[in-house]
Every structure is written in structure tokens, then in C-alpha cells.
């Protein structure tokens, strides 16, 4: 405790914590609660059985009513603490409930039946992180199909993006050729023109190419990202031209230069673009929504949205599936958060 306190009150340069530092801590801790709270609430809720999901007011931890298996009864019986007429409290198993009267037995002595008012019993509960929502949700939600589609789209699109963007960036940074500046200008100008503005004609083009209801229609169109080209080009400009020239003198072809000099040297920028591309594609919603209409091709995001749009919302499954959908991104972030945050701070893109 002492060391934790020392660590927290350790200032860089200044002598001791000013009251504004405490205010800052307060703000940051409140912010942490605000940012993580909703996600933690989601995760906690996803473990709750249906009865707990419907409970109002809700409780933070997932509870489950204890049950006991008694000989002579097919299903496990729910346990209650019952206040009997003589004022004693006993732990009994409920056999059936008729109106406001409950019939209970002692698991140790199943012959005797107690009849009590339902108000006189309280359920015996324990904290229980149940995986039933996940198991049943995965089946009714078609999870594996959607997951496969999302994985295919994310990986294929990232590979294509890295390839075509790095090739273009190489050409735009290391060659003088006619039309270069025009291409560069158009690239930068469309940096800000989003898909949402050209929905209708994009749909036409994709259907003319024959890619509606085809994962290619999701993978290819977004691969020529202006952001990626721009980011890689800026990085490649810092690679000295002399390296290329001496390689040419040694007889290397342009493709060899691209594959063996440029790509290895641009690794940091490629890593940043990889992280971004994975994030974009995993979370992408509008494009797959427009292109895909057959449910066996849905990605996780589109699938999740159509699942929640169904008539009666089955919250217990939806919560579990939402957790599964945000899990990969969260794991990636936990490991790479430093690269992601510094990558964004330096390139200013998302």
C-alpha cells in the first residue's frame, strides 16, 4: 500500500502533489469509470440467466439460484430459505407452486411436504458466471458463419490494402512521372469524401461488377484507401534515393527494389497501416450492409445488427454475442495499445 501510494504521489520534477493534481486524478478516475463502466456492465450482464436479465432493478454480479437433485424428481429443484410457521428458517427445495402457495420439501427427507406462502421464502442464490448464453447464442446466432466471414474479409482486405497501397506509395514517392501530381491531388482530395455520400452509384457499380452478395464486394472496393497511400508515401519519402540508385547499379530490377529494399524499410509504417486496416475492416458496417443481403454472407457487425432488429429482442444472447464481437479488438488493443495510440497521435487518422 505504501509503495502504491508512493508511486502515485511520485511527481516528475515537482516536490509534492498540488491540489490540482488530486483534482486531475479524480477526473481521470471518473473518466475511467465512464469509459470502462458500460463495457464492464455488458460483460457482467452477458453471464446472467434469462430470469436475471429480466430482473428490475438489475444487480451488478450475475446470480443463479441454487438447485438440488432429489430422488423421485426428474428436474433439479430450486432451493429456498423458508420461514416456517413456528418462526424457524429452513432450507427447502420447491416442488411446485400453485398461485401464492408453494409446496416445498426437505431434500434430506423428501416425504414431508411444506406448504407456505410464496412471500415467506427467499431464493438461495450464489454468484455464477454461466456460459449458457454463449453456448446457446452461438448456435441460434450463426456465430461461426459470421465469424468466418469477418475473418476472411479482415485478413484478405488487409493483405490487399497493404499490397496495392504500398505499390502506389512506392511509385508516388520514388518516381517522377507524368500524371503523378494529379494522382496525388485526387488522392488527397478524396481523403474526405466518404462512402456515405455515394451510396447509390457505389451500389450500382458493385452490382454491375457482379459482386453483390459476394465477399469480394466488401474486400476489394475499400482496399485503395487514400489514407493508407498517404501514410506510406510520407514514410517512404524518408528512405534515401541513393539506396535505390546503388541497387540499380548492381542490376536490381524495380520489382526487386520494391520487394527487398522498400518494403523491409517501410516496416514501421506498414505495421501501423496493418493495425488500422484490421480495425477498419473488423468494425466496418455500412459497406457490408449495402453489399450483402444474404444472411450466410453477413459479417459479425451486420449479423449482430440484424439479430437485434428481430421482433422480440433476446437480450441474453445478444449480450453474449456482443462480448464475443468486441473481444478480438480488445485483445489486440491490450497488446498493441502503445503502438495504436502513438500511431494515431503522429498520423492523425482513423
Amino acid at each position: 500500500m505504501r509503495t502504491v501510494l508512493n508511486y502515485l504521489t511520485n511527481t516528475r520534477g515537482r516536490k509534492r502533489l498540488h491540489f490540482t493534481d488530486w483534482l486531475t486524478y479524480l477526473y481521470l478516475l471518473m473518466g475511467t469509470a465512464m469509459m470502462f463502466g458500460p463495457v464492464i456492465w455488458l460483460v457482467m450482464s452477458s453471464f446472467k440467466p434469462q430470469s436475471e436479465i429480466l430482473r428490475f432493478p438489475p444487480r451488478f454480479l450475475p446470480y443463479r439460484q441454487e438447485t438440488v437433485i432429489v430422488e423421485g424428481y426428474d428436474t433439479p429443484l430450486q432451493l429456498f430459505d423458508v420461514v416456517l410457521e413456528d418462526g424457524t428458517t429452513r432450507r427447502l427445495a420447491q416442488v411446485r407452486r400453485v398461485g401464492i402457495e408453494a409446496q416445498l420439501i426437505d431434500p434430506a427427507n423428501p416425504e414431508e411436504i411444506f406448504r407456505v406462502n410464496i412471500a415467506d421464502r427467499t431464493p438461495v442464490e450464489s454468484v455464477y458466471f454461466g456460459l449458457e448464453n454463449y453456448q446457446e447464442g452461438v448456435e441460434s446466432f450463426n456465430f461461426w458463419t459470421y465469424l468466418r466471414n469477418s475473418v476472411v474479409v479482415t485478413i484478405a482486405a488487409t493483405v490487399v490494402t497493404l499490397l496495392v497501397n504500398s505499390m502506389a506509395a512506392f511509385a508516388l514517392s520514388k518516381y517522377q512521372f507524368r500524371g503523378r501530381d494529379t494522382i496525388l491531388f485526387v488522392t488527397i482530395a478524396t481523403l474526405m469524401v466518404p462512402l456515405s455520400v455515394i451510396l447509390v452509384p457505389v451500389f450500382l457499380v458493385i452490382s454491375e461488377v457482379g459482386w453483390t452478395n459476394n465477399l469480394l464486394g466488401v474486400i476489394i472496393p475499400g482496399a485503395a484507401t487514400p489514407t493508407g497511400v498517404f501514410l506510406l508515401r510520407q514514410y517512404m519519402l524518408t528512405i534515401p534515393d541513393e539506396l535505390l540508385d546503388s541497387a540499380r547499379i548492381d542490376g536490381a530490377s524495380e520489382w526487386r527494389i520494391y520487394l527487398q529494399i522498400i518494403l523491409p524499410l517501410a516496416r514501421p509504417a506498414l505495421a501501423v497501416l496493418t493495425i488500422f486496416s484490421v480495425m477498419w475492416r473488423w468494425n466496418d458496417f455500412l459497406w457490408p450492409l449495402v453489399v450483402l443481403s444474404r444472411s450466410e454472407l453477413f459479417t459479425l457487425q451486420v449479423g449482430l445488427n440484424s439479430f437485434q432488429g428481430e421482433l422480440n429482442i433476446q437480450w441474453n444472447y445478444i449480450l453474449a454475442m456482443t462480448v464475443l464481437t468486441l473481444l478480438p479488438i480488445t485483445v489486440v488493443f491490450a497488446f498493441l495499445q502503445r503502438y495504436i495510440t502513438t500511431g494515431i497521435a503522429t498520423t492523425g487518422m482513423k
Binding site: Y7, T24, L28, Q301, I318, T325, L326, I329, F333, Q337
Partner: peptide
């Protein structure tokens, strides 16, 4: 402000940015 745990808090504030629109909508 030069305080301990800066990197942690920075990541915390950034975390929701990574969540997909559908996930954000469902959480709320």
C-alpha cells in the same frame, strides 16, 4: 499533466474508439 499512470489513462480514454458502431449501440 505529468502524473503516474498517464499511459494507462490515455489507453482507457481511447478504448471506446476501437469499438464498432453496432457494439457501441448495443452496449448503450
Amino acid at each position: 499533466r505529468k502524473l503516474a499512470g498517464q499511459g494507462f489513462f490515455r489507453s482507457v480514454f481511447f478504448y471506446p474508439v476501437l469499438l464498432s458502431p453496432v457494439v457501441v449501440a448495443l452496449i448503450w
